[in-house]
């Protein structure tokens, strides 16, 4: 099983190499258009050496962390409130139903107009984009908390604060984590777009620069770095989730 997959993966990389090196020799299309692994590695080494890659990565990560962080705090707080207060939920719902289908990127220029070209517009845009799916996911997972668990806790003497801290939060925790993971993925998704438009640093800018200077190798390198970064962060979150949720997967006696 594993062997077949590894083989297929090697085949993918190999066919990239064959196509691009072959093209470089035969020049079927302009070799610049189909960067070889060597080209990509060279761009990568250059940008590592002069420190630009690290700067771009850090810039993007800081924007994502700030925007996502603000949205996560708001989403957890408001999600809990909305789930526990029926009237509030009913009043938030129509507004969210109205805003949600609008692709967030459609508001990106709006944020540039409102917050200027600096960091604020990117951070605010990421916060805006990631807030809604996280809020909806968190409110839903709080609403799904089994009422019987609350009854059990109340009959053991739990007051409202105990119920929230010791029952609602742990019971909704798996759902909250999933919502946060979705939000983080979305943040990485849209930061690229945000950095296409009027940024002078960040991985999105790096990729766009590759287009402006007609350097596809740089685009591929930027895309690969983003992919790696995303996989890495996701793997970390999944591992943390596993640790925190041992109670769900503990081996049966």
């Amino acid at each position: 099983m594993k062997g077949v997959r590894a083989l297929a993966l090697v085949a993918v990389l190999l066919s990239w190499a064959v196509v691009t090196y072959g093209n470089a020799r035969l020049e079927v299309v302009n070799p610049v258009l189909l960067p070889t692994p060597t080209d990509v590695a060279k761009v990568f080494a250059d940008s590592v050496r002069d420190g630009t890659l690290v700067r771009h990565i850090l810039t993007s990560l800081v924007r994502v962390a700030e925007g996502f962080g603000i949205a996560a705090v708001l989403a957890v707080g408001l999600g809990l409130l909305a789930a526990m207060c029926g009237p509030l939920r009913l009043m938030l719902e129509p507004v969210i139903e109205f805003v949600r289908p609008i692709p967030p990127l459609a508001f990106l220029p709006m944020f540039l107009v409102w917050f200027g070209l600096g960091e604020a517009s990117k951070v605010a845009f990421i916060a805006y984009t990631t807030f809604f799916p996280m809020f909806v996911g968190i409110a839903a997972s709080v609403l799904r908390v089994d009422v019987m668990l609350l009854r059990a806790a109340a009959s053991l003497g739990a007051q409202r604060v105990d119920l929230i801290r010791r029952v609602v939060l742990p019971a909704a925790f798996p759902g909250i984590i999933v919502a946060l993971r979705v939000g983080f993925g979305l943040a990485l998704f849209v930061i690229v777009g945000a950095e296409f438009m009027g940024a002078d640093a960040g991985l999105g800018h790096l990729i766009m620069e590759g287009r402006t200077f007609f350097n596809p190798a740089q685009i591929v390198m930027g895309a690969l770095v983003l992919g790696l970064l995303g996989s890495l962060v996701n793997a970390l979150l999944v591992a943390a989730e596993r640790r925190a949720l041992r109670w769900r997967t503990a081996q049966s006696a």
Partner: peptide, 15 residues
């Protein structure tokens, strides 16, 4: 899949 699709847009434009 882990590569945000938007990162590939400039490549489509170049190609």
């Amino acid at each position: 899949r882990p590569i945000p699709p938007l990162a590939m847009l400039p490549l489509f434009i170049v190609w």
